[in-house]
Design a protein around this nucleic acid. Sequence first.
RNA 1: GCGCCCGUAGCUCAGCUGGAUUAGAGCACAUGCCUUCUAAGCAUGGGGUCGCAGGUUCGAGUCCUGCCGGGCGCGCCA
Length: 591
Amino acid sequence: MNIFNLYKDHITGIVNNLVAAGTLPKGLDLSKVAAEPPRDFAHGDLATNVALVLSKPAGKNPRDLANLLLDPLKKLPGVTEVSIAGPGFINLRLAASTWADTLRHVLTIGTRFGDADVGQGAPINVEYVSANPTGPMHVGHARGAVVGDALAGLLAKAGFKVTKEYYINDAGGQVNSAARAVRMRYMQVLGRITEEDFQAALARKEVEYGGSYLIPIAETLAKRDGDKWASGDESAWLEPIKTFVVAEMMAMIKDDLAALGVQHDVFTSEKALLSAGKVDAAVKTLEDAGLMYTGVLEPPKGKTPDDWEARPQRLFKATEFGDEIDRPLQKSDGSWTYFAGDIAYHKDKMDRGFAQLVNVWGADHSGYVKRVKAAIKAFRSNAAELDVLLCQMVRVLNNGEPVKMSKRSGTFITMRDLIDEVGKDVVRFIMLTRKNDAPLDFDYAKVTEKTRDNPVFYVQYAHARGRSVFRHAKELWPDIDLSDVGLAQAKLDLLADPDEIGVLRTMAAWPRIVEQAALTHEPHRVAFYLGDLAAQFHALWNKGNDAAELRFLLADNQPVSLARLALVRGVGLVIASGLGVFGVEPVEEMR
RNA sequence: GCGCCCGUAGCUCAGCUGGAUUAGAGCACAUGCCUUCUAAGCAUGGGGUCGCAGGUUCGAGUCCUGCCGGGCGCGCCA
């Protein structure tokens, strides 16, 4: 139940009636008509821009149009007052029973409150994490993982049919490098070379990955296969070791993701796409469409390409679809570029029936967005809508001091480090307190502090306080039914304090937040909403300190107490509903 | 050089996909509030030419153009 949508429908109904009666012209575009909470509730409970939006097409000035709508609006159910303000806004005041009804509704459906149907069951694919299987995940991956997972949760709540997907880059040069590094570590494990030998090879750039995390993998390999791969040239051992490394890395990554509470529905392998011939097929589709040609690219500007060599290559006409330059799909050795594989991958997603795609990437991939969108557009017949969410850097701090990170020295912070340090729920919530395209500071001292400026604590504390009230209520009235069903029977019209009504108004906005955050792909809005709701609840709580008659529990007034318990429970349910979108557990009490 | 993202109070950031004479929070600063549901909190106050300059609009922090400043990226890496 979204009361704003409800009244928007009422309003468009009224307009349609006036059109039918000939008072207003036919063919008005009602898509921009909105019913929303006013900036200041002193103006009313709900405001609509209908007169402003329809003014021009209806050929009437906004205030005249508003006057036409005045009477029918007054007759709407639950409307107690209608006024015209400013340039032509119409403010509606709603009956007090509206808020009681909302609360009763929350108590009845629980954390399902906020579920919306804007998605209308449409399939949508959210691809996130997709970290290379060459090493452990770091904080940047954690942000992408949380943003993608929360967005998926949000879209599901808004009525989309969501598939959570991970693309395994197991076919390119990176995994070859990882396999070579593991092979060398394996030789070290077998005692054929020393750590010094390894470091020397690293310095000579004979191996790319120097991280010690590869040693246990080499040990496992040695345990499984003995010295089977110690002799022979690369052609003999590269493929089997690569397969082994990718499997080990993916197991580790899935383990880390599980620790973060992230679980993908589908893992798609780049290598599998290749061997199934899907890359060849995708490129052939482009060839057949006349979107490929052989050409020579200009050298890239701005940086000095010391090994630049102009050579003719097979190019995709990306510029026809909004990209800056045409893009090569084949390397000089004849193998496909990463982009070619990605084209096939996105085509595959579209072929699987997704008309809406979301990719969550690190901001360092920003230059890649246009070419993928171009590729998608090139498959005109079933081109999907792609939105790419670029996540900015996460700066890890400890009490304001930047934590130095360097892969070389091995002091970089892994995702697992973060989770072990502060817990998965804190990681998840904090990662959502900034919009994805803004840089984020993650201070692992501050995010566990119990202060106002720690948003996780603040929201959890509100929930815990609510539970605390119930513990007291049970002591006070052991025999009263304090279940949600029981509380829904309370005399909710006893909630009359302006701040109580204010909280109810905010609760009633939750379904609207879900819809908007889902449609704009902005899960961070949920975090800010929860902060607002928590703030109002804390304020209400403290009013009880200043004025005893405003306390939730009044020993001598059970009816009012029950109504307020219903309110407290409602706030708790909405917080739980919001945290549920993030995959965060609400806490019963603070310890 | 080009592309993408960002520029809002001393600091960190919101701003509901253009709306309503006073642009909002938090931190920091000042002052108040605990024999009473967790004061781990709340209330009040000062503080902003929304980077700059144009434009579109009945109406712009929000859209367009140019400039300034910061981040990221720019063939055969992924």
